[in-house]
Design a protein around this nucleic acid. Structure first.
Lengths: 212, 212
DNA sequence: TTAATTGACATACGTAGCGTATGCAACTAA
DNA sequence: TTAGTTGCATACGCTACGTATGTCAATTAA
């Protein structure tokens, strides 16, 4: 018994390393995470890690891309779940902010990620989320809902804005209140992108005034 | 001779360490920068560094706050130099993007900074620039130029958008073209914040269309 | 002027943690 | 059965950080 699963044992080892690394990176951060420690915690040694991922950075990159895939899926789900396409876009942005507030994502993807994988990684990465937002904006533009803007450029700007909003919220003493402020301001920004803001200026002003 | 300057010698040593660290951090990055190497390059040893800055992080923090002060000053200058207050604000944002494209600022402040000094640092930091932008927005709101938005929240969102725009530009194969796209999209975002965009929608659409 | 003290910086040491080289056992193939 | 490959552990060296200690110049006091 326990004899057939050869491929499975290997996949299990990979999975253990991935999980252990993800946990360590997500809590104490990349620099503080000792390979000896978290591989031992997974019942393995650094030898397995070097075999499967090459080095510490390799494991980190694998963890990041795993998380990135999860984030992309979550975003796509949220966007698809809304009937209105504009609503779907706004909800997607809100979901992105919410994800970026989560400590693990915050630490691994947005904090250590750029430093470990290099500044150039920033451009190519988050490709999933950026692509998702770019598609949304393209569609909204085609539908005549948003103004004539470059979809990718706008997606990247909004992505950056979302990120900073999340970091602001996560670092705040009053996450609740800060979150409300940030989301209200974000909606105001988004409303500015619409071709005709007539029927939307009113609610925007209303929410913007609700926290003063 | 060369006898009076006691205080001066100390300041000079501090300055040498700061400059050496800044150069190393700005080129090869924090993790790759060896204290033995760059202190030796400055004609000193690690002993001096530990004496003045406590540890490697301490020196890094000093470098970051030096750069942050410089950035704040540059931003204030740009903003003050423009006659129109709206123009001053827009110019300030553009200047922020331009600064963030510079390799040293990119690497030290936006790439390694959060990872080394911790995620929480993000909130408190960039305080100079954030405060500057917040003031601008408050003024513009009081002047009736921008809509009723929370100044600090909006400042942080725009700050994040600027940052990502800069990273996108810096990592692009075609920085010139990417920069045009990013700035055009950014102007479109800013225009959306104005109370009446009548006289500004035209040029915004014009610049937005100029790169298609 | 000299003795004492402080402070600026260098030297020496211990140690953690990464990467590589090597070893071994289990599985596969001929 | 044997030869070869693969998955992972063990052993080693090296780099680089932090601390403890030493030293010399500059200040202060007598």
């Amino acid at each position: 018994m326990a004899h057939r699963p050869r491929r499975e044992m290997i996949a299990e080892t990979r999975g253990k390393l991935l999980a252990a690394g993800r946990k360590a990176f997500g809590t104490i951060g990349y620099a503080e995470a000792s390979m000896d420690d978290f591989t031992a915690e997974a019942g393995l040694t650094r030898g397995a890690l070097y075999h499967h991922f090459g080095d510490k950075k390799g494991l980190f990159a694998a963890v990041v891309s795993e998380i990135d895939a999860e984030m992309t899926k979550r975003l796509e789900d949220v966007t698809a779940q809304a009937g209105d396409s504009w609503r779907g876009f706004v909800d997607g942005c809100a979901a992105y902010i919410e994800m970026a507030v989560e400590p693990e994502i915050q630490r691994i993807v947005h904090c250590d990620g750029p430093a470990v994988l290099g500044p150039s990684w920033l451009t190519t990465s988050q490709s999933g989320c950026i692509a998702c937002m770019t598609d949304d904006i393209s569609r909204l533009k085609a539908e005549g809902i948003v103004r004539d803007v470059d979809p990718e450029a706008t997606a990247r700007l909004l992505n950056g804005a979302s990120l900073h909003a999340a970091q602001w919220i996560a670092g705040s003493d009053d996450p609740e209140g800060t979150s409300k402020k940030a989301v209200a301001a974000f909606r105001a920004l988004l409303d500015g992108l619409r071709v005709e803001a007539d029927e939307h200026v009113a609610p925007a002003v209303e929410t913007a005034a609700s926290y003063s």
